[in-house]
């Protein structure tokens, strides 16, 4: 029983952590129509920033400022946001698929930096010993993880409520207006370029936050933590849950992460140890299947987009 409970807590921590990134992506794609194929890169920026700000000091590597956890989270958001502004200024004028290719390239480049800039990232060894605040507050892994889960739930709720308010505000309606018809939106005096950049930056800083929570929980960050497959996973979460809906984003994260870990567990029980190396491939095949089948059978995902987002629209 304790085993199931502790596993459930572990599962929820990671699913919600990814859920925050999915909400960020939802703001970008579901609401604004920005195709960000570089999610892994922004998770990495957040994760490394958190590690550098809160981690222990070490020789020959930058950082180790041992700052409080919350500073790490905020710093991760700021860093991912700053990278997003730079990236956005260069790429956001591109249309759809060019933006996808360009952002995919950014994630590849960020990973190259993570592997090679040893002074900043610890290179292939990564950065270890990132403090987890729950370790100070309680004894035993079960209690510690429960505390961390409470923290992640709190952050997720904050992000969810904040985003809901934002997308229901006039600014949020401009996002959809730009997505649907940019010319019409600009003829009403809106500035699509600016609003796009704002949505992109906010979405990426949520991805940074997600990366920081992930690293804070695992206590380690390495160059193989943010491979391109994470981008595919986050996208699958959004499509399965239903893009354009924040509840769908979280639901999708739960479902897809459930399938990923569940299938990993099942494979490890069934498949002989010498084939374990290939079990990851089977999991990835499953994710690919889910994405393609969802698009074919239920293109709006589990929960479709909310039709009206204005509180006043129903009064009419």
């Amino acid at each position: 029983m304790i085993g199931v409970l502790s596993y459930l807590i572990f599962f929820l921590i990671l699913a919600l952590t990814f859920g925050i990134a999915v909400m960020g992506l939802n703001l970008q794609w579901g609401f604004t129509g920005l195709f960000n194929a570089g999610v892994a890169g922004f998770l990495a920026v957040g994760g490394y920033t958190h590690a550098i700000l809160t981690g222990p000091a070490r020789d020959a590597v930058f950082g180790g400022f041992e700052l409080p956890f919350i500073v790490g989270l905020l710093g991760a958001m700021v860093a991912a946001g700053v990278v997003a502004i730079i990236v956005g200024l260069v790429t956001l004028r591109l249309r759809d698929e060019y933006l996808a290719v360009a952002t995919f390239g950014i994630a590849v480049s960020i990973q190259l930096v993570a592997v090679n800039w040893e002074y900043m990232t610890g290179g292939t060894l990564g950065l270890i010993g990132i403090p987890n605040p729950s370790k100070v507050l309680a004894d035993g892994p079960l209690r510690q993880n429960a505390i961390y889960l409470a923290l992640v739930v709190g952050v997720t709720l904050l992000a969810y409520i904040g985003l809901q308010r934002i997308v229901q505000s006039p600014w949020g309606r401009v996002l959809k207006a730009i997505r649907e018809d940019e010319v019409a939106a600009s003829s009403l005096g809106k500035n699509p370029t600016r609003v796009r950049l704002e949505a992109f930056t906010l979405g990426c800083s949520l991805m940074g936050l997600s990366g920081a929570l992930y690293v804070g929980f695992i206590g380690f960050v390495g160059a193989t933590d943010f491979l391109p497959i994470i981008t595919f996973q986050i996208w699958t979460m959004l499509i399965v849950g239903g893009s354009g809906n924040m509840k769908g984003a979280i639901l999708g994260a739960m479902i897809v992460w459930g399938v990923w870990t569940g299938s990993g567990f099942a494979i490890s029980k069934v498949v002989a140890p010498e084939w374990q190396a290939q079990s990851g491939a089977l999991q990835a095949v499953l994710i690919g299947l889910i994405l393609v089948l969802t698009l074919l059978m239920r293109p709006k995902g589990m929960i479709g987009e909310d039709v009206t987002v204005s509180r006043h629209a129903t009064d009419l």
């Binding site: 759809d96 595919f232 699958t236 299947l289 698009l295």
Partner: peptide, 20 residues
């Protein structure tokens, strides 16, 4: 753009099938 997502999924499928 839905085709682009689909191509993400197909890429995962194809690559990992080779690995398997």
């Amino acid at each position: 753009m839905t085709m682009v997502f689909a191509s993400f999924g197909v890429a995962l499928l194809l690559r990992n099938a080779v690995l398997l």
